[in-house]
Simulated scan of single mutants.
Amino acid sequence: MTATPAARLFFAPTPRSTRLGVLLACTLLSLATACSRVPELEDRLPADLRSQPYPDLLPLETALSDEPLPEDESAALSEALDARAEGLRRRAEELRRRQF
């Protein structure tokens, strides 16, 4: 089985120094971009807040409140509104039957 010239070129063994050079270039490029200043983000902070310390970090358990889930709240609200609407319908029907 003979390989095509493109396959032979693509799968040809590369010297160790070439692979090391590519790895070094990628590392240096990533380090250079990590140290760059991003003015679009840094300039958004007002001058009076720049000198303030960062706020303390809270554990997730204390940061989240123990409020019920929105699905539970909406179900309870829906049931309460349905019961109130049914009560108002019954009252309206009683008033219609009285016929002043």
Rank of each mutant, 00 (worst) to 15 (best):
V22C: 11
L58H: 07
P15H: 00
A85F: 02
D48A: 15
P13H: 04
C35G: 15
A63K: 01
L58A: 10
Q52W: 02
A63W: 01
L57P: 07
A3F: 05
R89A: 15
G87C: 12
D66C: 03
R84C: 12
L49T: 01
R90K: 08
L81Q: 13
E67A: 13
E67L: 09
T14L: 07
P68R: 03
L64H: 12
L31I: 06
R19W: 01
A80D: 07
A34T: 02
G87W: 00
E42R: 08
Q52G: 13
P55G: 09
E73V: 15
A76E: 04
L60C: 09
Q52A: 15
L69D: 12
E42Y: 02
S65K: 02
L64S: 12
F100N: 14
L24R: 12
D72P: 11
L9R: 13
L49Y: 07
A34W: 02
Y54V: 15
E71C: 10
S78L: 07
E79C: 09
L24E: 05
D82N: 14
M1Q: 11
V22M: 08
L23W: 00
M1W: 04
A3N: 13
R98T: 13
L23R: 11
A47G: 07
L81R: 12
F100T: 14
A7C: 04
E86W: 01
Q52D: 08
A6S: 14
P46F: 02
D66G: 14
R90L: 11
V38L: 07
R16W: 00
A75F: 03
E40W: 02
E94D: 10
L28A: 09
Q99I: 14
E93A: 15
L23T: 10
T4H: 07
P68V: 01
L45Q: 09
L9G: 14
A75K: 07
S17E: 05
G21D: 06
T2C: 12
L88H: 14
T4A: 09
M1V: 15
P55K: 03
T2F: 04
Q52L: 14
P15Q: 00
A85Y: 03
R50Y: 01
Q52K: 14
V38K: 05
R16Q: 06
L57V: 13
L49A: 15
R98Y: 03
F100E: 15
L9V: 07
R91Q: 13
T4E: 07
P15W: 00
A32Q: 02
L60Q: 09
L28F: 05
R37H: 11
L24Y: 00
A80Y: 04
Q99P: 13
T18S: 05
A3L: 13
R90F: 04
E94H: 05
A75H: 05
A92T: 09
R44P: 09
A76K: 06
E40L: 11
E61F: 02
A80M: 03
A6T: 13
A83V: 06
T33F: 08
D43E: 06
A80Q: 08
S74Q: 12
L95K: 07
L60N: 10
T62W: 03
L41R: 08
